[in-house]
């Protein structure tokens, strides 16, 4: 149990995927203009990331390793992620059209989120087991969502600030992300390894 809590803490705070590992920056910059969309994106990413983390672990363990096809890992994972996203989209579309409308374009966009592939690859690199992979994926997604929501709230404020013209838009957003990353450096050393 303690091990899983440590994995969660590590992925949410210490090794945050966005602010420390710099993965998943495209949705971080792209979908953080409004708080509502950021929340929706966070929810969708959390679901897909956890599911794809587990699925890619299964594919790696029971398909690639027994057949000796490790060199196909990256492309397999991309395929698995695409399938999971497509499957999620279809299920959500059929079962809850309301949620489908709220998530809109963000759902298919998750396919190209590098954090999702990053989690799958890091899981095999760190030799995580089944539950560990699930917790790792979930923690990474929670860390991503929390930071995305906080960032969106800051950006809503910066949008009305008297920012010098050359720094308007993405430039000041990147500066803000850098300062957030600076703050997250405070967590370094909190969880060893």
């Amino acid at each position: 149990m303690k091990e899983y809590i440590l994995i969660l803490l590590s992925t949410i705070l210490v090794n945050n995927f966005v602010l420390v590992k710099f993965l998943g920056l495209c949705p971080f910059m792209g979908v953080s203009r409004k708080l509502e969309t950021a929340t929706g994106m966070g929810l969708a990413t959390t679901f897909v990331l956890t599911l794809s983390s587990v699925c890619s672990h299964l594919a790696n363990e029971y398909l690639l390793l027994p057949l000796g096809l490790e060199y196909l890992r990256t492309i397999t994972f991309i395929l698995v992620i695409a399938v999971v996203v497509q499957f999620t989209e279809m299920v959500v579309h059929k079962t809850s059209p309301l949620l489908y409308n709220v998530l809109g374009i963000f759902l298919p966009l998750i396919t190209t989120n590098c954090a999702v592939l990053g989690v799958a690859l890091l899981n095999t690199q760190e030799h995580h087991g089944f539950v560990q992979s699930a917790v790792y994926g979930f923690g990474a997604a929670i860390g991503f969502s929390v930071v995305l929501v906080l960032f969106a709230a800051i950006r809503e404020r910066v949008a009305v600030a008297d920012v010098p013209t050359p720094f308007r838009g993405p430039a000041i957003a990147l500066v803000t992300a850098g300062l957030m990353s600076l703050a997250f450096m405070g967590f370094s050393g909190l969880v060893r390894g």
């Binding site: 708080l35 929501v149 906080l150 960032f151 709230a153 800051i154 809503e156 404020r157 300062l179 957030m180 600076l182 703050a183 997250f184 450096m185 405070g186 967590f187 370094s188 050393g189 909190l190």
Partner: peptide, 20 residues
């Protein structure tokens, strides 16, 4: 944590949370 005093980091982290 890895730093001797956490006040500066804590303030910056909560600055990030303040708009939310």
């Amino acid at each position: 944590g890895g730093y001797p005093d956490g006040v500066a980091f804590a303030v910056l982290l909560m600055n990030a949370v303040a708009p939310t």
